[in-house]
């Protein structure tokens, strides 16, 4: 199982802070994004924006591999400081 977390504006747009995703072979961050965007129109719209991704709390690009038990997170560009 893969845990997927959402933060800030994305979390509000989805009305959801996390979901569990079944593992698949050769899964990537980009593929996870695609699966989520295809859930429905609302998710598709939310994932069309400019988002960052992290795997196990480290920033990653779409090409990064996602394995079973990984924690994946999607969020808008950060605005701290």
């Amino acid at each position: 199982m893969i845990k997927v977390l959402f933060f800030a504006q994305l979390r509000e747009e989805l009305g959801c802070e996390s979901i569990d995703l079944a593992e698949q072979s050769s899964l990537t961050v980009g593929k996870v994004k695609e699966i989520l965007a295809n859930k429905d129109e609302r998710w598709g719209k939310a994932f069309a924006g400019n988002l960052l991704a992290a795997v196990n709390q480290e920033m990653q690009t779409d090409e990064a591999l996602v394995k079973d038990n990984d924690e994946v997170a999607f969020f808008p560009p950060v605005t701290g400081g």
Binding site: Q9, A73, P76, V78, T79, G80, G81
Partner: peptide
């Protein structure tokens, strides 16, 4: 400013909004 996962939401008279990067 560009890597740490913090997000600001501001409350103004017009309501609330997320700060843009």
């Amino acid at each position: 400013k560009t890597q740490a996962p913090f997000w600001k939401k501001e409350q103004s008279k017009e309501g609330e909004h997320w700060v843009e990067a």
